[in-house]
Amino acid sequence: MSISIENMTKSFGGTPVLRGIDLTVESGELVALLGPSGSGKTTLLKIIAGLEWPDAGALDVHGTDWLRLAAQDRRIGFVFQHYALFPHMSVRDNIAFGLSVRPRATRPPKAQIAAKVDELLQFLQITHLGERYPVQLSGGQRQRVALGRALAIEPSILLLDEPFGALDAAVRRDLRAWLRDVHDQTGSTTIFVTHDQEEAFELADRVVVMGDGRIEQIGNADQIHDHPASPFVARFMGATVELPVTLNAGRAEAPGLDASRLPRRALPDGPATLFLRPADITPQADPNGRWQVARCDSNGAILRIDLRDGDSTIPVDLPRRAPQAAALTRGARVTLRPEAGAIFPAPRGAPAPITPVEHRKEKAI
């Protein structure tokens, strides 16, 4: 089932939450809505489900105007972060619930419902849990039951809101691979909400990065990581170092900066901001360098280095066995060589700030 959203807006109490969303999801596609809290991704998911209504815009699903349909008529499978299982029902009854409460005219016979539940228990690899109650299950098992309940009604669209957010990291990794297999086998159109970048890029065919009620960028992991479309996306993807530079014939220039590894950019000459990730910066020993090593910590594999220039401090992550590492003792002066970065014209006014570094916790060397 394809989904088309056009110019969708939504406000709560006068505060805009969605600011003109345009998005198309192809039939059978798995799309992630990725962004920080407050970006509007859950609100958009709820509007698709019929749990919220937009102030304006269109929602077309496979040629049907879904804004004319009530939630119960959309045949949506919805999986929440905190499972929302019925504690007084067994696993089997939880999975059967959506079929059991259908109007009598459309309700399948009991034998058909039982057969569907058996099929899903086997498909979800939880056959041995059918007679247990939610309190007797682990978090990962509960989430499988929640997905089974959503799949039982054979939904036209599957929606998942932070489905693994309440689980520990190891269980999340296992369930991500499992969910992708479920999606591929069912062929459903799936949209899931997450703030976890690794989860989004591992699972989804396409990732929709949202911020402040807008879609900032749509693409795959490499596209968004290497070519962020806006300063917001660059920061969200970990480019926490922001250096004021001057663009000259497409090259970034600044004191203490060797930008020879960066490609020329088709941008006008003048002030700009260079966005860098700490792992994409190579400090090069230089007695006349602008930056000075203020701190150098190790976690065994990575050196976490703070470089200072006056009141400005930037973080650098460097492999501990990198050739440059031996020269980076406290007090050494260096020049910065970015290996990759994003450049955006600076807003009119003051130059972009350098992001302060977070407190380092590893043992100093």
Rank of each mutant, 00 (worst) to 15 (best):
Ser2Cys: 01
Glu6Gln: 14
Glu6Tyr: 01
Thr9Glu: 12
Lys10Asn: 00
Gly14Gln: 00
Thr24Cys: 06
Ser27Leu: 04
Leu34Tyr: 11
Thr42Pro: 08
Glu52Gly: 03
Trp53His: 10
Leu59Met: 08
Asp60Phe: 00
Asp60Cys: 06
Val61Leu: 12
Leu67Ile: 11
Arg68Pro: 04
Leu69Cys: 05
Gln72Ile: 01
Arg74Asp: 05
Arg75Leu: 15
Ile76Met: 14
Phe78Gly: 01
Val79His: 09
Phe86His: 03
Met89Ile: 03
Asn94Thr: 13
Ala96Trp: 02
Leu99Ser: 00
Pro103Phe: 09
Pro109Phe: 07
Ala115Lys: 12
Lys116Arg: 15
Lys116Asp: 02
Val117Ile: 06
Glu119Cys: 10
Leu120Met: 14
Arg132Gln: 12
Gln136Cys: 06
Gln141Asn: 03
Arg149Val: 09
Leu151Gln: 08
Ala152Thr: 13
Ile153Phe: 09
Pro155Phe: 15
Pro155Ser: 15
Pro155Ile: 11
Ile157Tyr: 08
Leu158Thr: 08
Asp161Ala: 03
Asp181Trp: 09
Asp181Asn: 14
Asp184Val: 06
Asp196Gln: 10
Glu199Gly: 09
Leu203Phe: 03
Asp205His: 12
Arg206Pro: 01
Val208Ile: 09
Glu216Val: 04
Gln217Ser: 13
Ile218Trp: 12
Gly219Glu: 14
Ala221Val: 11
Asp226Phe: 05
His227Ile: 00
His227Tyr: 02
Pro231Asn: 06
Phe232His: 14
Leu243Gly: 06
Val245Phe: 09
Thr246Val: 11
Gly250Val: 09
Glu253Gln: 14
Ala254Gln: 10
Gly256Trp: 07
Asp258Ser: 01
Leu262Thr: 05
Leu262Met: 05
Arg264Ile: 00
Pro268Thr: 12
Ala272Thr: 02
Thr273Met: 02
Phe275Glu: 11
Ile281Ser: 08
Ile281Thr: 06
Gln284Phe: 08
Ala285Val: 08
Val293Pro: 09
Arg295Gln: 13
Arg295Ala: 14
Ile305Gly: 05
Asp311Thr: 13
Leu318Phe: 11
Ala326Val: 07
Ala327Leu: 14
Leu328Pro: 02
Thr329Met: 03
Thr335Tyr: 09
Arg337Asp: 01
Ala340Lys: 04
Gly341Tyr: 07
Pro347Ser: 12
Ala350Thr: 13
His359Glu: 13
Lys361Arg: 13
